[in-house]
Computed example of a mutant assay.
Amino acid sequence: MKMRLMAAIALLVGLLVAMPGWSANARSVRKQLESSLQVSGTVTIGKDGSVIAHTLDPKAPLGETLVDFVNKAVAGWRFAPVMVDGQAVTARVPMHLRLVAKRAEDDKFSVTIASSYFGSNEAVAQSDNPGSTRLAPPQYPKVAQRMGGEGTVYLIVQIDRGGKVANVDAEQVNLRVAGTANEMTRLRDMLTAAAVRAARDWSFTPPTTGETANDDNWLIRVPVDFVLLGPGDKQRKEGEWDTYIPGPRNMGMPWAQEKLKTAGSPDALPGSGAYPLRQGATLLTPLG
């Protein structure tokens, strides 16, 4: 089991029709299917918040049309100026995007940039952000295994000044199997319980420098991936199209809900690990 969303190896059209389901009632749920692709790159932000330049991973299977679409969207973005020591600076930050394709009429597809994650300014010290020291994976629930249930649990973890977990809950659970509403709720609950139980024993390193070093606590996102692999099965790889049914977003955490309002969706996180809820750049315009 890997602690990160990994893309399924299949063609986009096949992904949208081939997701496993438990019952005939799952057909209505399939309408919620999304196929998505994570795309990494960088964006250089001017002192006024405008985009000076950006790059995209040349290995991403985008094609000319999608590359043009993303390039035009990014070029039109506007950010809040990136501040360092109280001064606006030109900042080059890691950029991670999630493109989502949905089936439209006449077997056509609509593609949007659904979510984004911007890492820390390359000039910012690593000690300015919280990090992880122990992220032991959870036990796969046996009932979920028997159901063939797979999915990704996006956790929000609040850590205290000692690096211990003060609070933890699931922000969203995306599933890779279709079932009835009750079946999917049950599976989401099982995966959430397993991930939360494991997270209570995790440990982290609070920031020791930067403007948040004196805070009482910090919020971190951790994606936990539940994947069943049989003999001869290959692990899903990042950078390829993946299909899932997105779960509802949980904003009802009293200890995190105010900051979650401006944090954006979690599913653009770039890989395994722990990610500060506070990103390295704040996008002011729509994603596109």
Results as ranks from 00 to 15, higher is better:
Ala170Thr: 05
Ser40Arg: 11
Asp267Cys: 05
Val173Ser: 10
Leu15Ala: 08
Gly252Asn: 10
Val82Cys: 10
Asn71Gln: 11
Met184Pro: 00
Met184Ser: 14
Asp242Met: 11
Ala256Trp: 00
Gly252Ala: 13
Gly21Pro: 00
Arg249Tyr: 01
Gly151His: 07
Thr282Glu: 08
Ser120Ala: 10
Gly232Pro: 03
Leu191Tyr: 15
Arg278Phe: 04
Gly163His: 14
Ser28Trp: 14
Asn25Gln: 05
Arg161His: 08
Trp77Phe: 09
Leu260Tyr: 00
Thr209Pro: 11
Ala88Glu: 06
Leu269Pro: 02
Ala114Gly: 01
Gly119Ser: 03
Asn167Cys: 12
Val29Lys: 08
Leu283Val: 04
Asp215Arg: 15
Lys261Pro: 00
Val100Thr: 12
Gln145Leu: 15
Val196Ile: 15
Val51Arg: 04
Ala53Ile: 00
Gly148Asn: 10
Ser116Trp: 09
Leu99Trp: 11
Leu229Lys: 07
Met3Glu: 09
Lys31Gly: 10
Leu15Glu: 05
Gln158Ala: 13
Thr212Leu: 15
Tyr140Leu: 08
Val74Ile: 15
Leu56Phe: 06
Ala213Met: 11
Pro58Arg: 07
Asn217Thr: 12
Asp216Val: 13
Asp267Ala: 05
Leu191Ala: 14
Ala268Trp: 09
Asp107Glu: 08
Asp48Ile: 11
Asp242Phe: 07
Pro207His: 12
Asn121Val: 02
Ser115Asp: 05
Gly63Leu: 14
Met6Ala: 12
Met83Trp: 04
Pro276Ala: 12
Val82Met: 07
Leu97Gln: 00
Pro141Phe: 11
Ala80Ile: 02
Val222Pro: 00
Glu258Ile: 04
Gly148Cys: 11
Met6Leu: 14
Thr212Lys: 14
Pro138Gln: 04
Val93Glu: 04
Arg278Trp: 01
Val196Gln: 14
Glu122Met: 04
Leu287Asp: 00
Leu260Ser: 00
Thr44Tyr: 01
Leu56Ser: 10
Lys59Asp: 07
Thr90Phe: 03
Gly148Ser: 12
Val157Pro: 00
Met184Glu: 14
Pro138Asn: 03
Ser35Met: 08
Gln87His: 05
Pro206Asn: 07
Ala26Asn: 05
Leu219Gln: 08
